[in-house]
Amino acid sequence: MSQSAASPQNADDLLSEFSLLGGPLQRLGRRLGLVRPGPNTLPLGIALGLVPWIVLVALAALEGDRGKFFTLSVIGGHIRLLAVIPLLFFCETTFDRQAREFLSTLLRSGVASKTTLPALRAEVRSLARWSNSWIPDATSLAATVLMFLFAAQLHLSGKTASPESGRALALMPLAGLWYWMVCLPLFRFLAFRWVWRLAFWWRFLWRLARMELHLTPTHPDGVGGLGYLEVVQNHLAPLAFAISLLVAAGFAEEMSEGASFDPIYLATAIIVIIDVVLFLGPPCFFAFKLMECRERGLRDYTVLAARYVEDFERKWFGEASPDREPLLGTPDLQSLADLGNSVGVVRNMRLAPVSIRLLAIILAAALLPMPPLFLFKYPVAEMAQKLFMKLTGL
């Protein structure tokens, strides 16, 4: 471990305080046994999605409308409760663990040195206070109530045919009322909570990028020792998938009622842009610091390389040095090659902990829910017939 790295005791104390999770809902889930040590909030997410859905199914069965309930016109409701809500909690569980691991790598590798420790500790404690505060949940609840009132006002004024998620539920008095009054507000509340989680993470990285970090220009990860941040961002892929899944479900509802297919192209492009900004933007906070590290490395290694090359040429090509040492087996040539490799690593440093692999993972998560929508425009039988004709030349 680097001499400038934090001591194991200090690192453990800091890691024990770090968390992006908390608040009244999580404390309630812990009391109910739905938040496991770790913390693992996925059981809470499954319960919050499954229990309202079971009630919704029961109410639809009482009204004798189970056939309508399991149609594409209400698929958005099923997706919200059975897929998106659990995905939100699965993502926050894995993401929080990886964010803690990122902080651990900074401390153990010495990127966050002893001089940085006081500022980092203050930031971690501030993050913990906000995460455990009632304010995020309270403001999320307030935003949910305001959105509910706004949607109800639009519905009553006749500007929308139905509040959301298809007309089939509007024809089921009991199930529809449960969905509009409980299920949809619950989903919105949980979505607003995730906005807070992202805001906490963005703020933490923004503040971290302005601390005195010990970045190494020749670090093999190509970003001075910040490479594990890419792993953290990878674990936001389920959130990108959940966003696209929700949008795809909305389009499926509309197209089941005869809406046009064409808006999907623009919506997909917008989703991709939003995901790139949300999940690839925060690592770019380190761009100026990495640029400074790269310039410093090029300056230092250029001077070192010039000194080494000058001594190398003087030793092997100077007038006073021929035949003094056997050429075969000399470490000088290997050292020259190693120095060249080090300069190459510095020159090829990335200006953000973002790679093609991370971009591909986020794009794949964002685009994966969209292809099934093409079945509305190209039915399976028709697609198979066209493919057969293309292959056979008919």
Rank of each mutant, 00 (worst) to 15 (best):
M1N: 11
M1F: 10
S2K: 13
S7N: 10
P8A: 09
Q9P: 00
R31V: 06
R36A: 08
P52C: 11
V57C: 15
L62D: 10
R66C: 13
I79S: 03
P86H: 08
L87Q: 03
F90A: 13
T93H: 00
T94V: 15
D96C: 00
E101I: 05
G110W: 11
V111F: 08
K114I: 07
L120N: 00
D137K: 02
A138K: 07
A142G: 08
M147W: 13
M147S: 11
A151M: 14
P163D: 08
A170Q: 13
L190C: 02
R193W: 01
W196M: 03
A199G: 06
M211R: 07
P217G: 10
P238R: 07
P238L: 07
L239W: 09
L239C: 04
A242M: 01
E254F: 05
S260C: 02
A269C: 14
I271R: 05
I274T: 08
G297R: 03
R299N: 10
Y301T: 05
F312I: 10
R314I: 02
R324E: 15
R324A: 14
P331V: 06
L333I: 11
M349D: 05
L359P: 01
A360R: 12
L363I: 13
A365W: 02
M370A: 10
M370Y: 14
M389Q: 15
